[in-house]
Write a protein that binds this DNA or RNA. Structure first.
Length: 639
RNA sequence: GCCGGCAUGGCACAGUUGGUAGCGCAGUUGAUUUGUAAUCAUCAGGUCGGGGGUUCAAGUCCCUCUGCCGGCACCA
């Protein structure tokens, strides 16, 4: 007798070994039909696999993530089958399920074309219609190697040879297509359904290694049904509308030129936005006791030899040589910051010191890596270096985390996850010092009640670090802040302070950035808000638009009064219909339009129309100014 | 950097099998003075990313460079 426990805790009994398909059938006809695979004691397996002992069993359907994952994985096999039918000379490699879909990497002398993609998709539909049964087979290692060697599939042979000795080598067969695969899979190709689509072609290195050959990767998306697919495609369109490169153009924020790849030309409104971000952070950290410095853009190579960058970062650095002297355009701010700290003799009474720099750094990023504001070759770091004693470390970490989370919150980024990376195998510094610094970071977080995930061994060679990720309005995660303990640079630059005992001591240095790159953060804010910035951030807050020329003088007066109140305002006095003006400024996502007609001019009022609202509110000018000033309050500063 | 795709007036695009550049929006000028998401007309604007080649003829074909887009690799 065999007891099968279902998720609702009910128990089914069977005489002997039973399959997931049989269990599903016993529960109901509907479930038998929608069953894709089965979870046995939490482990997904084929519907046809026998269950030989008591177990907790859950039938997997397309409604769950597990189900979708299996659909996607099988879909990648269907694609591989289609490809080998159409292009028999193609070798298969790997084809996993990924978020929202799947891919398969193929080896083929001639790359696929977009037209091939259409043909492959068509053939996939046919394979789904054929509803080929998918059968699992187990082979010995030698059989498996022989099988693929005969087929000329050298990548598969390599994969098998690298599998651990203990691993069962399973194959999945559908029609004439056989693939090495751990599974599980759908019972037949028909279960893949109609909810898939091939999305894009890409080159991808074999085993992710850029020194190896490049394969042809085809990406696809797959869902439970056509409806799921359509919903996903719509979601993609929506995300595209948020693309900061597109909004940057629409709102006239910035542009790029061929002469400066990866470097930004900020337009007036974009620069205002950027400056507003910096001003906010500056005010917040000045309030928190930071001082701000600025250090040279170009410094002699010897500095970078001292810091070590010349050894391990040289290929990313821009250099320039003049008077037979080689200089580096700074890729990081820390060495400059240290030189400032080193001025004069520091006492323990001077610590901790918070030295901030909005430093513009240049880094050579590979041409293929450049991407809008997100990945550029010149950007501004919101850097700060904190020099403190080992005893102060924990307290200082807490202060940084508190400030960081409070500032994120001001930008409506409330979903933050924290990662603690600890000592790597290759490192400098004593184990005692690592014990102390790791514990200080961990304790700082737990004392404040913050959860974190541990990344053992992922710290920098010079110290442990905290990384901060935030989730945006449409669920994407961005790595923003970082807090790193550095035991290396103080050593290299021989930084010291005089302790209570009158002796020289080595301070601990913390690197800290809240947003990392402010250019990138600006891009993230554009996408997070879809260009509809909160009023305090909006580069242009108010447009005063006239309805007829009669209102011009008053409109100018209104604009001047708003400007005097510290608001960012422009006028639109053109000889156009008000609806034309409303449309234009709404498309540019200006938060407030003030319409000025005869009535407003006569009564000294304004007709307020807010972005996204159709209703208008007429109010006295002075009241409106007071309200806008309130709206413009910066979180945690003016309110 | 690698694979693939793309590059046409400020923006978004069309240009059939190579025959000598089109539309819309923006801009100009004029009319209209308008009450909340596009008023009408007028005019102007392009060595089709750069260089080279094939051809009687190249935006269309070939080579090459640059940049952009999608991935990969990279992201101290």
């Amino acid at each position: 007798m065999l007891s099968i426990t279902l998720p609702d805790q009910s128990v089914l009994s069977f005489e002997g070994p039973v399959t997931g398909a049989e269990i599903a059938a016993k529960i109901g006809v509907g479930l038998a039909k929608s069953a894709l695979a089965v979870k046995v004691d939490g482990k997904p397996q084929d519907l046809s696999a026998p269950i030989t002992r008591d177990a907790a069993v859950e039938i997997i359907t397309a409604k769950t993530e597990d189900g979708l994952k299996i659909i996607r994985h099988t879909c990648s096999h269907v694609m591989a089958e289609a490809v080998q039918e159409l292009y028999p000379e193609t070798q298969v490699t790997i084809g996993p399920a990924i978020e929202n879909g799947f891919y398969y990497d193929f080896a083929r002398a001639t790359p696929f074309t977009p037209a091939d993609l259409e043909a492959i998709e068509k053939r996939m539909t046919e394979i789904v219609d054929r509803d080929e049964p998918i059968v699992r087979e187990v082979k010995t290692r030698d059989e498996a190697v022989k099988f693929f060697e005969e087929k000329g599939e050298k990548y598969k042979v390599e994969l098998i040879k690298d599998l651990p000795e203990t691993e069962t080598i399973s194959f999945y067969r559908q029609g004439n297509f056989v693939d090495l695969c751990r599974g599980p899979h759908l019972p037949s190709t028909g279960k893949v359904g109609k909810g898939f689509k091939l999305m894009k072609l890409a080159g991808a290195y074999w085993r992710g290694d850029s020194s190896r050959e490049q394969l042809q990767r085809i990406y696809g998306t797959a869902w439970a049904d056509k409806k799921g697919l359509d919903a996903y495609l719509t979601q993609l369109e929506e995300a595209e509308k948020r693309d900061h490169r597109r909004i940057g153009k629409e709102m006239d924020l910035f542009h790029f030129e061929d002469v400066a790849p990866g470097d930004i030309f900020w337009h007036p409104h974009g620069w205002t936005l950027f400056q507003t971000l910096i001003d906010y952070e500056r005010k917040r950290q000045n309030d928190a006791g930071y001082v701000e410095i600025n250090t040279p853009q170009i410094m002699d190579k010897v500095l970078w030899e001292t810091s070590g960058h010349w050894d391990w970062y040289r290929e990313n650095m821009f250099t320039t040589t003049i008077e037979e002297r080689t200089y580096c355009i700074k890729p990081m701010n820390c060495p400059g910051g240290i030189l400032v700290f080193k001025q004069g003799i520091k006492s323990y009474r001077d610590l901790p010191q918070y030295i901030a720099e909005f430093g513009r750094v240049h880094r050579y990023e590979a041409s293929g890596a450049i991407h809008g504001l997100f990945r550029v070759r010149a950007f501004t770091q919101d850097d700060a270096h904190i020099f403190c004693t080992p005893e102060q470390l924990e307290d200082e970490c807490q202060k940084v985390v508190r400030l960081m989370l409070s500032i994120y919150e001001a930008f409506d980024l409330k979903d933050v996850s924290i990662k603690l990376s600890t000592r790597p195998a290759e490192r400098i510094g004593s184990d005692e010092l690592w014990d102390h610094t790791e514990a200080a970071l961990a304790k700082a977080l737990t004392d404040m009640g913050y959860k974190y995930t541990l990344n053992p061994g992922d710290g920098a060679f010079y110290g442990p670090k905290l990384d901060f990720k935030v989730r945006d309005a449409i669920g994407r995660e961005w790595q923003l802040g970082t807090l790193q303990v550095d035991m290396n640079l103080p050593e290299r630059f021989d930084v010291s302070y005089i302790g209570e005992d009158g002796e020289k001591h080595r301070p601990i240095m913390l690197h800290r950035a809240l947003f990392g790159s402010l250019e990138r953060f600006t891009g993230i804010m554009i996408e997070n808000t879809a260009g509809k910035f909160p009023f305090w951030l909006a580069p242009l807050q108010i447009v005063v638009a006239t309805i007829t020329d009669d209102g011009c003088d008053y409109a100018k007066e209104v604009a001047a009064a708003l400007k005097k109140a510290g608001l960012r305002v422009e006028t639109d006095l053109r000889n156009e219909k008000i609806s034309y003006k409303v449309r234009e400024h709404s498309l540019k996502k200006v938060p407030v339009i003030l319409a000025i007609g005869k009535r407003e001019a006569a009564d000294r009022t304004v007709a307020v129309r807010r972005l996204g609202e159709e209703k208008q509110t007429v109010m006295p000018l002075d009241d409106a100014i007071a309200e806008f000033k309130k709206n413009a309050a910066r979180p945690h500063i003016d309110e």
